[in-house]
Design a protein around this nucleic acid. Structure first.
Lengths: 233, 233
DNA sequence: GCGGTTTAACTAAACGGTTAGTCTAGTCGG
DNA sequence: CCGACTAGACTAACCGTTTAGTTAAACCGC
């Protein structure tokens, strides 16, 4: 049943991230497909079992390379994990960047963010589990992620909500909690997809199920946040 | 700041779960407080770092017992982990059982569940992280948890939603997705509490913050689910 | 074009630190 | 005496990491 592992999805853009010193594969990269295969396999494993639970041997075997190659490219398990995360965060940022529209009403603006985030996560279903894992342990690693990636996103969303409130399009809600709820509705669904598949007896990541989820979120959002002419307050 | 570990909370009832054969501490239990201390420490560690990430030596040291005592009582790391989970599930079931009210309108009924779940989670903030960890990996362990604990709960909630719809009190929403959203709004908040604390610069588990979250959820629920006279559809 | 050199990609196998789990010998309170 | 518990040494396996190579292609002077 739907408890098969969730495959990692490669980057949609062929151009790679700018060079980082000390990392061979980003400088010359004669065979980028191997590095990709390692990254995608690692993404899947880390999402499923976490940094501590994933096994280097298994990642190497699944990626069909010798495990020494992981060290040749990434230096250590932690570094590999960091690269998996950073790759996804970079994709998320560009994805959200692409989906935003500064013109348009606050409602259209917010819906752009919500749909953008939902699109990204449905294209990268491992992302929520990887981030959830980071977010659940209170280490300094977390602070770094928050400062560099999550806080900017949350602040944008919060501002979008506040603009909607001052424009009178949204109800007078708590912006912080509303953003949390928005993120939760998408993130939880994909992070708990194995559970929901088991629970419903059908694959929660099937495209039809995913679109159903999107509709449910937009519906809830519509009647939970937006002030319509026919509704009070 | 708010990145301190989240303490585990002991059972509210003094009576223990019925005896299981093969487990010394449940049969005679001359010093139940030691067993409790082990369980609560393990709960905190497993929530923070997961089964694979938590260290037996560290749990023993934090619980101020000799490591051999963990094996004396629980036999293995996995068994200890299983007991931590089962203890919490048992508490959850009794807690939800206590909070339900079959009389009353569908709305009151559903609110009873939502508040009951919220109360339980806010009293046991480690629960969401422990369960989230289980739910994210697709093992057979998951199927067992779902069948025994999660499915019954979800079904009750789904029926509560459906009754509200047929009674005309709720909008005509998808019951499954609505339940998922209800669970998500509470679960995600507490599971991601370390993140939110970091993000907001204040402790997300502080009682005032927790009550703020409850209000936000109920508000969202009110305007997202319930059909009011003044609202359309 | 051709031998020789370099370099990136990759491997087999060992190495060694960590850690779950065990054992012994014993203490202490009732 | 017995059951709860400790101190701490110990083991065996697991698993991250390293080493010491091999292969193949690109490069280069002639």
């Amino acid at each position: 049943m739907a408890l098969r592992p969730i495959p990692a999805v490669p980057a949609e853009t062929s151009k790679r991230t700018p060079a980082r010193k000390g990392l061979r594969f980003l400088q010359n990269a004669k065979k980028p497909e191997t590095v990709q295969r390692i990254l995608l396999t690692a993404e899947r494993m880390f999402a499923e079992r976490g940094l501590a639970g994933a096994r280097i041997d298994e990642i190497a075997a699944d990626a069909k390379v010798n495990k020494a190659l992981l060290y040749y490219y990434f230096g250590s398990k932690r570094e590999l994990h960091r690269h998996v995360l950073e790759r996804l965060f970079a994709l998320l940022l560009t994805s959200v960047e692409a989906g935003r529209q500064n013109k348009g009403s606050p409602k259209e603006n917010l819906l752009g963010y919500v749909n953008g985030y939902f699109d990204f996560v449905s294209r990268h279903p491992n992302y929520p589990r990887l981030v959830q894992r980071e977010v659940m342990e209170c280490g300094k690693h977390l602070a770094w992620i928050v400062d560099n990636y999550l806080r900017p996103l949350h602040q944008r969303l919060a501002r979008a909500v506040e603009r909607g409130i001052t424009a009178g399009e949204f109800r007078r809600v708590d912006a912080q909690h509303t953003v949390t709820t928005l993120i939760a509705m998408t993130t939880f669904y994909f992070a708990a997809a194995p559970l929901l598949s088991e629970l419903w007896g059908r694959d929660a990541l099937h495209p039809r199920a995913v679109e159903g989820r999107r509709r449910a979120i937009l519906d809830f959002l519509e009647h939970g946040l937006f002030r319509a002419r026919t509704r009070s307050r």
